[in-house]
Design a protein around this nucleic acid. Structure first.
Lengths: 216, 216
DNA sequence: ATACGGTGACTGTCCGGTCAGTCATGCACC
DNA sequence: GGTGCATGACTGACCGGACAGTCACCGTAT
């Protein structure tokens, strides 16, 4: 979606623009992000951005897609497809949590496509974002159901839906101020979200999933 | 938080303003809502709104709180505290889904306090919104654990967190265009969200919760 | 010299909040 | 019951700041 010019410029500059754009869009939201401020943070002129992208909207979409790919790479990259579902889920939750803590901006971008006035973006992006995970989870559940690792009376679709819902909420809880407060209220914890404090969260959540899916 | 004047005016007018404000804030989000347009929809002058509220922000907070109370009333209103946890959860999910379908605006307002740039609102509202449900769910789980209706090896806090997470996601799936698309992808359903199509959703989700919590 | 990326002042639009003035109501006094 | 006055809700033109996108010009490399 960028113009060709964007791929001809210095790689540093390109990365800088993408990084600052992700940061600002995540911090302020789409509408409240000021293109002049973005330009100045990225160390380029406002006009230059319009040499690379047709519009603010185009830039936003590109930044979102780029973030989705980076996230996917970080989370699914080092996962062995032969691991059983419980190990894969734990891996996804742990890698996801780590990635989200070091790059909260991409998760915030994801969360924002579901907020008011963003419908035009979700029409363009939601399926693209969700399809990959949905397919993967369902395949995994079916496979391990056949292997006798998952109880056969659960509904595959609902189970996948539930696992991914927990994932989304947990990740949002590391990042959004509302969901952080909510998490603290439910789990009666402080506001320590360092890597060490993460582990019990992951264990607690994946344990629930185990309880639900393991044959009795 | 409104000025005294707001409570002295005609009740019709007050209701009209609150209704249109909830609608517009939900449709456009806080920043994109135009006070002049709101005034015209509510059939009053822009200046009048500033006779009732200090600022756009004040109005927004009041509309959110008002929506929260209406939702709570609709959902918890006709519930017998003696019902067991499974019946209560089913009741909450069903009443919640119905209310959200007839008044999507309030859920959208809730969802929006977790989006980018809304931190100042979540500091003021999140605890207030979540505490009630969190306390209720935990109490319920503990009570029915003692009664032998809930397996005693689940972690109360995580279980409450999980139930409420599913509730939030399911409600969001009835309302946000992103979560609608996601729900359709997971459950391989069409875009029919009439009252009849709701029941299997509620059954599916509450079944998962039953599987998880019932003693084996 | 030509092509192309870079630039930032400029433009038109939008919008939150203000305020000086209007008007309906109700009350006191005749 | 009529006159005059006080109160306070109502109004919308206006102001000032913000901001997306444009464009005419610049510098540089070939």
């Amino acid at each position: 979606m960028p113009k060709e010019t964007f791929f001809k410029i210095d790689e540093d500059k390109r990365e800088r623009l993408l990084r600052e754009a992700a940061g600002l869009f995540a911090e302020r939201g789409f509408n409240q992000t000021d293109m002049a401020q973005l330009a100045s943070r990225a160390g380029i002129a406002k006009g230059s951005i319009y040499n690379y992208f047709e519009s603010k909207e185009d830039l936003y979409l590109y930044v979102c897609r780029d973030g989705m790919q980076r996230s996917r790479e970080a989370i699914y990259g080092r996962m062995d497809p032969e691991w059983d579902i419980y190990r894969q889920i734990e891996h996804i939750f742990r890698q996801g949590a780590r990635f989200v803590q070091s790059h909260p901006e991409y998760l915030i971008l994801y969360a924002n496509i579901s907020s008011a006035g963003m419908e035009r973006f979700s029409e363009q992006m939601s399926l693209e974002v969700e399809k990959y995970t949905a397919d993967h989870l369902k395949r995994l559940i079916r496979r391990d159901m056949q292997r006798g690792l998952v109880r056969d009376d659960v509904n595959v679709n609902f189970a996948a839906f539930m696992v991914n819902s927990l994932y989304i909420i947990l990740m949002a809880s590391l990042v959004s101020s509302h969901f952080k407060i909510r998490l603290q209220e439910y789990l009666e914890m402080g506001d320590d979200f360092t890597e060490a404090a993460l582990e019990p969260l992951i264990q607690g959540t994946t344990n629930m999933i185990n309880n639900l899916l393991r044959p009795v």
